[in-house]
Structure formats: structure tokens, C-alpha cells
Simulated assay, not measured.
Amino acid sequence: MKVWILGVGMGPQHVTPEVANALRSCDYVIAAEKSGDDGLLAARRAIAEAYGVEVISVPDPERDRADPTDYGKAVRDWHEARVSAYESVLREREGTAAFLVWGDPSLYDSTIRVVEQLAGRLPMEYDVLPGISAPQILAARHRIVLHPVGQPVHVTTARRLRDDIATGQTNLCVMLTGTLDLDGLDDWSIWWGANLGTDSEELVSGRVGAVAGDVEKARQRAKESAGWVMDVYLLRAP
């Protein structure tokens, strides 16, 4: 068996020629299917259809999202459930399969870890091809560089934002936002975007104290338009 992990950016328009060639070689795509109206599954179907590849949807196991005490264990349990679900499909169909990763597989995505576990259970090989990431599109949309001259950018999650600020981080790219917590950061600057690269894209930038309300409204518009919202933002201290 062969498995490709393919970064597809924010939709069909971001599929690179390299990823397109790999996708054409596949027999099928495996895609998680979440409950309700799954806009991300629809996007994956559109990409696969453009290259004549069948999509096998697999009901995505539920994850404990109630801020469990042991967050790491909750994620590991979720990954294990995904491994078992995907293993059944791979054993039955064999051939060459692909996982289409929103954005890039290297950044806050679990697919590589899941496939590593699958490779320990099945006689298979796998490879990874990169995609365009949300931070890249965010920087392009706002026409900015993610870091000041000669300085770093700290990529983190909303869950860790307050801890990272407390340790002295002053230039942070924040992903996996869930809810926005910008209290006390009024004088910081923010460059924010949601559903980047899609028809429901929203952008806001400015001083946090001046645009926090605009961000919340734009976030709601994106969710109402697409049925889901995935946002990312750059936060910089004054």
C-alpha cells in the first residue's frame, strides 16, 4: 500500500502541480466526515473530483472538547480512534490512498502522526507533500511580513496564548483559535483573517482596542456564510 499526505492549502485554487500529480496517481481519498453540514469535507470532495479520484468518507470519532484536564491524553485518544477507523478502510481497499490536509501538514495538523501509527500496523509506505499554510495567506492578504526585521515570529495556539505572552513573547501567530481572548491587549496590533482563500473570507487589522468588535462581527459573518469558521491572526506588542 501507498499513502500520500497532501497539503491542499485552503481549497482547489491552492493545489500545487506537485500535489496534483500525486493525487492523479491515487485510487481514492480518505476524508473524515464530521457531524452536520461538513464544509471541509465538501471542499475535499471538490478537490478530489477535479482529479477524478473517489472520496471515501469516514465518520470522525468524537473528541473531548470540554477543556479536559489532560488535553494531551484527549488528543491521543482521538488519534487512536482515527487510526482504527482509517485502518479498516486501508485493509479493505489497499491500493494508493491520499489524505488531503487543509493548509500544510507540518503545522497544527494530526495527519502525519495518524499515518505514522498506521504504518506500524500495515505493510505500507507513505510520503508527504507541502501545501500553502494559513499564516502564509494571512501575511499575503494583509501585505505584511510576519516578523519585524531580524526578529522571530512565535507560532502558537489560542489555548497557549496567555502563557506565551507571560513568558515574554511579543510577536505571535495564533492558530486553532476556538474563541478570541484579547482582553487587556488593547494597545497591541492585530492582523486577523478567517476562512482565508474561500468565498467567506474575512479580514480585519488595526489596534486591538479599536477593532476587537469588528473582528467578532467578521468572525460571525464568516461562520454564517460557510457554516464553519477557521481563523488565524498575528498579534504584535506595541
Rank of each mutant, 00 (worst) to 15 (best):
D109F: 15
S35A: 15
A85S: 08
R236I: 04
M1G: 04
K73N: 09
R143W: 03
I30Q: 01
P238D: 05
G150P: 03
A218V: 09
G11R: 10
R93C: 00
E54L: 05
V153R: 06
P148A: 14
L23H: 05
S106D: 04
G213N: 14
I144H: 12
D186Y: 11
K34H: 11
G72K: 15
L129A: 07
A140Q: 13
E87N: 03
D187C: 04
P12Q: 10
I112N: 00
L180T: 07
G9N: 07
A166R: 15
E92Q: 14
Y71L: 12
R159G: 10
L176G: 06
L176F: 07
V229P: 09
E87V: 00
A212I: 06
L118C: 10
L161F: 14
A48V: 10
E80N: 07
M230I: 13
V58C: 06
R82F: 10
E94M: 05
S189F: 11
I5T: 07
F99R: 06
L138K: 08
P12S: 10
P152C: 02
W102T: 01
E116Y: 06
S106V: 13
D186E: 06
A119K: 09
D38W: 13
Y86W: 14
A81T: 07
T69H: 09
D186W: 09
V89W: 04
K217S: 12
R219E: 03
L100P: 02
E202K: 15
A166M: 07
R121G: 05
S189P: 05
Y108L: 13
G95P: 02
G227P: 07
P59D: 02
E116V: 02
T179H: 13
A226Y: 13
R160T: 13
D163M: 02
S88W: 09
I112G: 01
A119G: 10
G184A: 13
A85R: 14
P17K: 11
D187W: 03
Y126W: 15
